[in-house]
Simulated scan of single mutants.
Amino acid sequence: MTAHTTKLKRIISEMESTELNTGSEIRAYCDKARDALKSMAVELEFTATELQSRLMELPPEGNEGRMKVRTKARTCARHLRKSAKAARTGAAEATRTWASITRQFEYILGPVKKVKPKKILNLKI
């Protein structure tokens, strides 16, 4: 079990207890969803690499060569890599959920504070 798996279990247990009654709870839930999906993406990538390595070690079938086994292993691992990509997309969508809520329900949440950009340098030439 990797550190990401442990983190994922902790995040999911925290998400289950969220009631979504306040704006801060909704935002915290969206942040936790993003973190969970990012951890899931990393876990899937690691597993895809491990699966591909293990499948490449298998003996070839009949008269096929080692290259055929490598191609088959890469094909099988590709599905987990696509799952990892989908999890990363899900993490981005979880972040967009909060942004959408702040736009659509601004009248309930209150106006969003606009941050004035800070000047880095005051150069006089």
Rank of each mutant, 00 (worst) to 15 (best):
K124Y: 06
A91C: 02
T2D: 10
D31V: 13
L123Q: 04
S83N: 10
K124C: 06
Y29R: 05
T18V: 05
S13F: 11
Q52S: 09
K72Q: 11
M40A: 10
K32W: 06
D35P: 02
S39D: 03
G23P: 00
L8S: 08
I120D: 08
M1L: 14
E43N: 03
E50T: 05
S13C: 14
D35R: 06
Y29D: 05
M67P: 04
M40Q: 04
W98F: 11
T95I: 08
D31C: 11
E14P: 01
R66T: 12
K113E: 11
T18M: 06
G23F: 00
K72S: 06
I108N: 12
K116R: 14
E45W: 00
K32H: 10
R103G: 09
P59E: 12
H4E: 15
R54I: 03
R70I: 11
D31T: 13
I125H: 13
A36R: 00
S24A: 11
F105W: 09
A87M: 00
T102S: 08
K32L: 09
N21K: 05
A3N: 14
V112N: 04
C76F: 11
N63C: 13
G110D: 02
A28Q: 09
E106D: 12
M67D: 15
H79K: 09
A3S: 15
A41Q: 01
S83G: 14
R74P: 03
E93V: 07
L51Q: 03
P60V: 00
V115P: 02
P111G: 12
T75L: 11
T97N: 07
P111T: 09
T97G: 03
D31F: 12
H79L: 15
N122F: 05
R81E: 11
A41F: 00
S39H: 06
V112S: 09
G23T: 02
K119E: 15
E14N: 04
N122Q: 09
C76M: 07
I108A: 08
I26G: 03
E25T: 04
K7V: 11
K85H: 08
A84W: 00
I125P: 10
L8F: 09
A41I: 01
V69T: 13
F46A: 14
R103T: 12
L51K: 04
